[in-house]
Amino acid sequence: MTIDDAEVAAALMALAEKRGRDKTFCPSEAARRLADDWRPLMPEIRRVAGTLPLIATQKGQPVDPVTARGPIRLRLAPQGRRGSRG
């Protein structure tokens, strides 16, 4: 099964918008929506998250979602601001 970037972006943004600007979510929640075997999707989920208006954090501190090791959380970036990598 092939998942394209648009599907990943839609899943990530749907979760972020549902939670609102002040709440975070685990990127694996998006992966689980896209595939039963979700773990192999995580590098793509993180890559796409870095292109969206999302902030990735670890222990409350902003991180790059692609290079961060270990669990991260995502949330909507403030209005008009790109995510952790932009």
Rank of each mutant, 00 (worst) to 15 (best):
M1A: 09
M1S: 05
I3W: 00
I3L: 08
D4A: 12
D5L: 15
D5Q: 15
A6V: 02
A6P: 05
A6H: 14
E7C: 07
E7G: 08
E7N: 10
A9M: 11
A9G: 10
A9T: 12
A10Y: 01
A10H: 05
A11Y: 00
A11T: 10
A11I: 14
L12H: 01
A14V: 10
A14Y: 00
L15V: 12
A16C: 14
A16I: 09
A16M: 06
A16G: 02
E17N: 06
E17L: 12
E17W: 09
K18N: 07
K18G: 12
K18Y: 07
R19W: 06
R19M: 08
R19Q: 12
R19L: 02
R21E: 15
D22V: 03
D22M: 03
T24S: 07
T24R: 11
T24Y: 02
T24W: 02
T24I: 13
C26H: 01
C26F: 00
P27L: 11
S28I: 05
S28Q: 12
A30L: 11
A30P: 03
A31H: 04
A31M: 12
A31G: 11
A31P: 04
R32A: 07
R32H: 03
R33M: 05
R33C: 02
D37W: 03
D37A: 04
W38A: 06
W38N: 08
R39N: 03
R39L: 14
P40I: 09
M42H: 04
P43A: 11
P43M: 09
E44M: 11
R46M: 13
R46E: 12
R47L: 07
V48Y: 03
V48L: 01
A49T: 09
A49R: 02
A49G: 14
G50E: 11
G50P: 09
T51S: 05
L52K: 01
L52W: 04
P53L: 11
P53S: 04
L54E: 08
I55G: 01
A56F: 04
Q58F: 13
Q58H: 10
Q61I: 15
Q61P: 02
V63I: 10
V63C: 08
V63R: 00
P65I: 13
P65K: 13
T67M: 11
T67H: 01
R69K: 14
R69I: 15
G70N: 12
I72V: 08
L74P: 13
A77Y: 07
A77K: 13
A77L: 15
A77D: 05
A77E: 07
P78I: 01
Q79A: 13
Q79S: 07
Q79I: 14
R81C: 09
R81D: 08
R82E: 04
G83F: 03
G83Q: 00
S84C: 12
R85D: 07
R85L: 14
G86S: 08
